[in-house]
């Protein structure tokens, strides 16, 4: 049997508030295959975003293991994790998180700075990514000159610019109107189907979750 692309084993995460330990995730075990599109749903405070952050390598678990393509990322140092993220994970945030002083093209080019690509190659990759999200004609616009939906599409272009295997999306449609949300979800669906990206999405929106192939619910830090 083929081993899963993402394997979460006995994951616990708790936060310390003064002397109080607040458990957020309890004994999460989960397997995700390459090319899956998985949506995490659940009420606020159920631990969806924490689980996503742990799999994306921007947070560390209290205990448990996370294997991605066979590598235990919980054993990596901060520096190693940073390098790993730059090569394997693309981030899509609810509020886009574009750098306001950079144009769409420059924002997409940003993660490519961390690659050994030449300046010309970086620009070419960034243009291609913007072309994929349908914003080639807005590449020289600053974020403030774009609509919310366009900003999120630029953020998606930034997420795919380095061609990562995993895309993590935290409420990607949470700040968008219905039409823009549909466009973004359609785009993510295409990235999953056509480019075989493994997508992990946290959402409150049932319509967004419908786009995923699988939905996992979390409640009080446990998978339902």
């Amino acid at each position: 049997m083929e081993s899963p692309f993402i394997e979460v084993v006995g994951l616990f995460k708790s936060y310390q508030r003064d002397s109080l330990e607040i458990p957020v995730l309890r004994n999460i075990t989960l397997n995700i295959s390459q090319g899956d599109f998985l949506a995490f749903m659940g009420p606020s405070g159920s631990g969806k975003t924490t689980l996503l952050n742990l799999i994306a390598g921007i947070d560390k678990p209290t205990s448990g293991k996370i294997f991605i393509a066979g590598m235990d990322i919980t054993e990596l140092s901060e520096t190693e994790l940073a390098v790993w993220r730059s090569q394997n994970v693309g981030f899509i945030f609810q509020f886009y998180n574009l750098i306001p002083v950079l144009t769409a093209l420059e924002n997409v080019e940003l993660p490519l700075i961390l690659t050994p690509l030449s300046k010309k190659q970086r620009r070419s990759h960034a243009e291609t990514a913007l072309h994929v999200v349908g914003l080639a004609e807005r590449m020289h616009h600053f974020p403030r000159q774009l609509s919310g939906g366009q900003e999120q599409r630029v953020a998606i272009a930034r997420a795919i610019a380095t061609d990562p295997a995993i895309l993590v999306a935290d409420e990607p449609t949470g700040d968008l109107d219905k039409t823009s949300a549909e466009e973004v979800l359609e785009l993510m669906d295409r990235l999953n189907r056509e480019l075989n990206k493994t997508i992990l999405m946290v959402t409150h929106d049932p319509r967004a979750a419908e786009r995923a192939r699988f939905i996992r619910n979390l409640e009080k830090g446990e998978l339902a």
């Binding site: 994306a56 921007i58 520096t79 940073a82 390098v83 790993w84 993220r85 730059s86 090569q87 981030f91 945030f93 998180n97 750098i99 940003l110 993660p111 961390l114």
Partner: peptide
């Protein structure tokens, strides 16, 4: 702070 967190998430080093 938010932007620096994004840069760190993208993999930018210290």
């Amino acid at each position: 702070t938010h932007e620096f967190a994004v840069l760190k998430a993208l993999g930018f080093s210290a």
